[in-house]
Simulated scan of single mutants.
Amino acid sequence: MLAPLAARGVTVEAAIWDDPAVDWSGYDLVVLRSPWDYALRRDEFVAWAQKVPCLVNPADVVAWNTDKRYLAELSAAGVPTVPTAWVEPGQSWVPPADSGEYVIKPAVSAGSQDTGRYDLADPEHRELAAAHVRRLTAAGRVAMVQPYLNAVDTSGETALLFLAGPDGLAFSHAIRKGPMLTGPDLGVAELYKKEQIDPRTAGPDQLAVAQQTLAAVPGGPDRLLYARVDLIPGPDGAPVLVELELTEPSLFIGYADAAPDRLAAAITTHLARQP
């Protein structure tokens, strides 16, 4: 991003969000990119975001998007979303009686950390799934339990990337992510599992779900610098939302030739909006 921004006369400095020596008010724009250590310090991160002038995406979006319970709100708004059960701290949880596969992860997380896949037909997996939920809730975290969508093993996951333009948020490019979850989470810290990433052409049905998702963002999508909408085919083949990444997404700009320029243009668009 440095070259296309420099070509537009934009000076860039990388800074760490929790560095007390940084004067955030000294910047015309602060762009969130990779604060992937916030998951275990979310309250501190959200409080920091609220104090930063000219932050994109905005602090209220950060507060909403860093807790995956936003999926329940989007589902209530009519967005096709992977079914999710939520287990609060202090609640007990028993694995479903059926023998399907499920994914368990915390509601506040980054990457693949604390995420596992369980085949509930396997007695050992059932015990490990219950232990995973207990481990999360005992730490004061909300656990989320979702059916594993088997289409990710064949079709993969589609990430649709949107960047700000002169007329609001616009589709930029899409990529395909192959399956990552191979089994239970055993409590070993692992932020990112190895991914297979390839460019992908987004279909009309995927674009429609993505636009429906973005339209339901509190405050509307036109305030956003970027958005990533992650979709997987559901049991009937229609795309369903897995995650909406508005805080620290990998934007995969290396997978579309013009994407770096589009992101640089998006940043200059937001710079021009600042008082």
Rank of each mutant, 00 (worst) to 15 (best):
L2M: 10
A7P: 06
T11N: 13
V12T: 14
V12Y: 06
A14S: 15
A14H: 14
A14C: 06
I16R: 10
D19C: 07
D23V: 15
G26H: 07
D28W: 02
L29S: 03
S34L: 10
A39T: 07
R42H: 11
R42A: 06
A47L: 14
A49R: 00
K51W: 01
V56G: 03
P58M: 09
A59K: 00
D60Y: 07
W64Q: 01
W64P: 00
N65S: 10
D67A: 06
R69A: 10
R69K: 12
Y70K: 03
E73M: 11
A77Y: 09
T81N: 02
V82D: 01
P83D: 07
T84E: 04
T84I: 09
G90F: 07
G90I: 07
S92K: 06
P96N: 08
D98R: 08
A107I: 13
T115N: 03
T115F: 03
G116T: 07
D119P: 05
P123L: 11
E127P: 05
E127W: 10
L128H: 06
A130Q: 12
A131E: 15
R134I: 08
A139N: 09
G140T: 15
Q146S: 13
Q146H: 11
P147K: 05
P147Q: 09
N150F: 00
N150S: 12
A151V: 15
T154N: 08
G156E: 12
L160H: 02
L161P: 00
A164R: 11
G168S: 08
L169Q: 01
L169D: 00
A170S: 05
F171Q: 02
A174L: 04
I175K: 01
K177A: 04
L181F: 07
L181C: 04
D185E: 08
D185A: 04
V188W: 04
A189W: 15
A189P: 06
K193R: 14
K194N: 14
Q196E: 14
Q196F: 09
I197Y: 00
R200C: 11
T201D: 13
T201P: 00
D205K: 06
Q206R: 10
A208C: 13
A210T: 05
Q211R: 15
T213A: 07
G219H: 08
P221T: 15
L224G: 03
L225N: 01
L225C: 04
D230G: 01
L231T: 03
I232T: 01
G234E: 07
P235V: 13
P235M: 08
G237H: 08
G237L: 14
P239F: 08
L241P: 00
V242A: 08
E243S: 09
L251Y: 03
F252D: 02
Y255F: 15
A256K: 04
A256R: 03
P260I: 13
D261I: 02
R262V: 09
I267S: 00
I267V: 15
T268C: 13
H270T: 08
H270N: 05
R273E: 13
R273A: 15
R273D: 09
P275N: 10
